[in-house]
């Protein structure tokens, strides 16, 4: 059972308001997709969930407790890139999480304990379709396989929350259907909460149980950094039609153009 409660959350850097007045209640086992123009603080939001960043104001509770100040094993993460360990084989990449928990001093298992852990690892590798590649170094895998590996690596730890920051954005579009099936399967099987940022609004609709849109409500060319983004749409999925999709696309494009114009100026 995992719940999240975010109330009147603000995040500011020096002279820039990134997020303002974000409110969110999350029940157990939700699959939340997050979309929004780039620069709207989606990654910043994820980094706060990770514990890498602190909110400037507001409360951020996980199961009623304040969020820990650093990343921990209850919150897994998959980034867009660089989220596997190139110097380890596929098997060792997945094994690592088990070894770290079971061998505090050396972070390495030997003998029978290693074999037992490897049995779990191989089961996970079968589930994500990487068993054949188990002895390859992660550095030798294709981008899509690295992302699968990174997902497997996190999921074997049975995290309460899995955070995905545009995990498929760098991949060949043909691969995303497979990836979607994989992530939905794991979500159903492992009963976790998933937060997934995506740049592709359609993907956001297809995957989640709930879609959040991060957007700036006020666009002030005189003071572009004075106002942050907040959650402008919170949509339970399964109810989406074409008009809503078009409306969201128009909204985020407007902000995107605004941000780009500022960047050029």
């Amino acid at each position: 059972m995992t719940t999240l409660s975010i109330r009147r959350l603000w995040k500011e850097y020096a002279d820039q308001v990134v997020l303002e007045n974000v409110n969110l209640e999350v029940r157990d086992n939700e699959f939340i997709t997050i979309v929004g123009a780039s620069g709207c603080g989606k990654t910043t939001f994820l980094r706060m969930l990770l514990g890498e960043e602190r909110p400037t104001r507001g409360t951020f509770l996980i199961d009623g407790e304040p969020l820990p100040a650093e990343p921990g094993p209850d919150r897994g993460v998959v980034f867009q890139r660089y989220s596997v360990f190139p110097h380890l084989t596929v098997r060792d990449n997945v094994l690592l999480g088990l070894e770290l928990a079971r061998a505090p001093r050396l972070g390495r298992l030997f003998g029978a304990r290693r074999r037992a852990a490897l049995a779990e690892v191989d089961e996970m590798l079968h589930a994500v379709g990487l068993y054949e590649a188990r002895d390859k170094y992660a550095a030798q895998l294709s981008g899509g396989m690295q992302q699968r590996l990174s997902i497997a690596q996190s999921v074997i730890k049975n995290p309460k929350i899995l955070l995905l920051d545009e995990p498929f954005a760098a991949l060949d579009p043909g691969l995303s259907a497979d990836m979607h099936k994989l992530i939905l399967g794991l979500w159903e099987h492992h009963k976790m909460n998933i937060f997934m940022i995506t740049h592709d609004i359609k993907e956001g609709f297809e995957l989640g149980t709930r879609l959040l849109v991060f957007d700036k409500v006020r666009l002030d060319p005189q003071a572009p950094n004075a106002y942050g983004a907040t959650i402008t749409y919170d949509i339970p999925l399964g109810v989406c039609g074409k008009p809503l999709l078009d409306e969201l696309t128009t909204q985020t494009r407007r902000t995107e153009r605004f941000v780009n114009k500022l960047a050029v100026a």
Binding site: G72, L96, S154
Partner: peptide
Amino acid sequence: EQIIKAQTLGAS
């Protein structure tokens, strides 16, 4: 990313 990832896998 790697350093964060390792921490989410429980590394001290």
